[in-house]
Design a protein around this nucleic acid. Structure first.
Lengths: 115, 115
DNA sequence: AGGAGATACCTTGACAGGCGAGGTATCATG
DNA sequence: CATGATACCTCGCCTGTCAAGGTATCTCCT
């Protein structure tokens, strides 16, 4: 089952930050990494990806620089900042809270739920 | 920690369906039930709640009828349909898939992640 | 030589869900 | 008779997603 993007919404920036926690990366690479990690179940659309990078940079969570490729297409690399690392940890906690809440609420529909 | 609504987005209809799986209910009651279940951590805003009911009804997932209260404010009750029950189960599965994917992607940011 | 496909970036405009702010009406309590 | 709870509804804005379009480079096949 592929993943409904409506359910990912609000997590794209955190997902990107998680990738950058491992080291600098560029857009296309980050997207492929996500695609591979999820076994093809999920992929950020380009427009979504680049607008998320833009928001993260505007917020000071990441900084960017052009790579010095002498061959092939140019690459804009992104590096996570201290603010970005702190933001990642906060967002992850928020996700875990939301996850627990939704799990609980959705379980309400199951039969035989004991009090 | 309260729950960022951006992270709940896309789940409100499923949350409502989960409540209606337990029996007919009206808007205000459903919202209070959610508030209580989450210990005040999460509450649907009225505008969100009623537009979600409208969408669910348009989609044939629920049907509504006016209660016959002889006192107090009038109540519009909602009843889940077979289509709604099927939709609930599907949406719940989709949520579980999304949850697993996001968990995996967010774990990427942790240190000491082995290959 | 030339076309296809991968790599790599970007922007615009539309869409959909959430919600602030406003409204209506009834009832209980102080 | 004012306040707060109950209970419903709508309008218009905001924000994140994404289809569709664009640019440019490189490799591979024919």
């Amino acid at each position: 089952m592929s993943v409904a993007s409506e359910l990912i919404r609000g997590n794209t920036e955190t997902i990107i930050l998680a990738q950058l926690m491992k080291g600098d990366g560029y857009g296309y690479m980050v997207n492929k990494a996500i695609l591979n990690l999820t076994g093809g179940k999920f992929e950020l659309k380009e427009a979504t990806l680049y607008t998320a990078f833009r928001r993260l940079e505007d917020a000071g969570c990441i900084v960017s620089y052009w790579g010095d490729e002498t061959t092939g297409a140019r690459r804009r690399y992104y590096s996570i900042t201290d603010l970005g690392r702190a933001s990642y940890r906060l967002r992850k906690k928020e996700w875990e809270t939301a996850e627990a809440v939704i799990d609980k609420l959705l379980a309400e529909g199951e039969e035989g739920v004991s009090k």
